[in-house]
Nucleic acid binder design. Structure first.
Lengths: 349, 349
DNA sequence: GTGAAAGCGCTAACAT
DNA sequence: ATGTTAGCGCTTTCAC
């Protein structure tokens, strides 16, 4: 439609006028219901739609119909391969079902998390996926009532939401145990900020597993860093350096590292190489994630793989079901990862 | 508000009723205009808003007010670090201005691109960022009329859109020239699919630069692969193998590789290592992108860095301006990247 | 300074 | 089988 020289999108009324029917019939044709339409009428409407290049206004439809066919997705940081793969997997599946994903990078900042949450709730998303786990599982704003939510981590006690996540503590322990089997006692840990629930759980798994072997797991063996290659690089430099010697109390350098993300482990391997330390001979490394790039570091990472596709499928299936039928009961799924053996742990020398 | 036992979000009318004012006044207060409100009235309204935890319905606001405060962002693949960094940079800036980004991964598939474009246009995004460059710069659907668009690549001749992109051909030539300076003649090329405009331009830059040095750049030295570590890995295996010997006509293995993405180069370096070829002594590598992970490969990549932050800032600034004032004229910005010297090209041995 | 009311484009109940 | 119409929740013009 054109008013003056300004192009304006055609509306349902324009289509109706052109087809010589009422606006309702246009809706019936486009939505294939709820009332039947005669074949001839349907064709006239379809012709008018094509002629005008008409597309229904999704905003108006959402206001009236109730559903926006959109999903809010909160993630810490799409630059981290783990979350990039997770986001992509979730997005692909929702997209196949006709949903659009509204993404927010929270950077694990509580304020940004809350701001995004407000923003997407204001836009009346049909469901929420929270993979950015700072605080939301605890303090749900009132606007969240009634919105299906999947939290992609282990649920806090008594959480009202659905949770689909890894058993981070147990998986971390498995990773550390593997290093122990290779004969390592002095196993350092590089992790993300411990106020992120999953990071805390992984650190705790490292501690517990070390304790169970009467091996050290004190603050001098733990370095917290940004969840990126850069972070892993500087953390490893700190932990392994001959200069600062944070490991001095133990008399020797850690012979192995448990790193809570593939991205950090990539940086840590780089550091080892820079320091002239061979992986795995001088420093063995096991990481957490199982992302694609982890298979192309030198040496390839041994990593505790999380099944991202399974997480995504379970998330999308549950939310689709819950959107269709709000009485669907919540789920609480805890997966176990599996150790993918690369060449960074010492299994193959 | 509660109807029966089902929680329903409070509306502006609820706030008005509680504050003892008309719905219009609530809008005046919340939007800080367009009419003034007495201080006392304002406070009563604000108290009512707080008490009800009222949040304006963004859908209704968009329908009435015209702006959805949302941006459509089409990207090939968020798993590729280059696009992940670009997406994050754009998203962060729009977010700071109060816009929400609707992301679509098109995987460089024309159908998916069109489907996403329709989806976001139906949702009346205020502007579009196209970093997924299959075909859209050519065939713009009518619904795109009037929507500010930035295409993140060089524009096609006569394109109606704004373009902010690299001079891919020239930058590729710069990268190849650098390898030539190191004495390489037989320089292979690993790229993404050539029906992606920027990939075609980079291949063309490689060809031109090789031709200008009377060096070979035939099909036997070019391997097209998926834009990922995996893709680079298999492409390099193909190109460098002693078995297939695609380079047989030249009598020897390529001594250098120009790789059109950091992700592929990461895979290619891995392949070299597996084949027992040293980088850069046996095979020198220069890639294209300048992403963060490129600094943590072993050896770190020499890469033609694109200024992602500049791209993002220019994009967001231009679109914000164009949204505020549609008469803003289109821009056509072509940047030059700069070669970041790592240790994969041979500058440092 | 405040209220009443039109209308954004659509869906669906109700009327014919 | 098709037409008419009431709203979804909001913004903004117009009247007081």
């Amino acid at each position: 439609m054109t008013v003056g020289s300004r192009a304006v999108a055609p509306t349902r009324s324009d289509v109706a006028r052109l087809a010589g029917v009422s606006p309702a019939v246009v809706s019936y044709v486009l939505n294939d219901g709820p009332r039947p339409v005669a074949a001839g009428t349907r064709e006239r409407v379809e012709a008018a739609v094509r002629q005008l290049d008409y597309r229904p206004n999704a905003i108006a439809s959402a206001l009236r119909g109730g559903s926006t066919r959109s999903i809010g997705f909160l993630t810490p940081n799409q630059r981290n391969p783990f979350f990039a793969e997770l986001a992509e997997a979730v997005e692909r599946r929702f997209s196949a079902r006709g949903y659009l994903v509204l993404t927010g990078n929270t950077n694990n900042d509580r304020n940004r998390e809350e701001a995004y949450l407000r923003t997407v709730l204001d836009r009346r998303v049909d469901a929420l996926v929270l993979s950015s786990g700072v605080s939301l599982a605890r303090s749900a704003p009132p606007a969240m009532r009634g919105v299906p939510v999947v939290v992609l981590e282990e649920l806090a006690e008594g959480s009202p939401f659905s949770g689909i996540g890894s058993d981070d503590r147990a998986d971390a322990a498995t990773a550390v145990e593997h290093l122990q089997h290779h004969g390592h006692e002095l196993i350092g840990c590089i992790s993300g900020p411990p106020w992120i629930a999953v990071e805390a759980a992984r650190i705790s798994g490292w501690r517990r597993q070390q304790a169970s072997a009467s091996a050290p797991a004190g603050e001098d063996l733990l370095v917290v860093a940004e969840q990126s290659e850069e972070g892993g690089n500087s953390a490893a430099a700190l932990l392994l350096s001959e200069h600062g010697r944070p490991w001095a109390a133990h008399g020797r350098r850690p012979s192995a590292l448990f790193v809570t993300s593939d991205a950090q482990a990539t940086g840590a391997i780089y550091t080892c190489h820079e320091l002239g330390l061979r992986v795995p001979q001088d420093v063995a490394v096991v990481s957490f994630g199982g992302t694609h790039p982890a298979a192309y570091t030198i040496p390839p990472l041994s990593t505790l793989r999380q099944d991202i596709n399974f997480l995504a499928t379970a998330t999308v299936n549950h939310l689709s079901r819950k959107i269709a039928d709000p009485s669907t009961s919540r789920v609480d799924l805890t997966l176990r990862g599996n150790l993918v053996i690369g060449r960074s742990c010492g299994c193959t020398l």
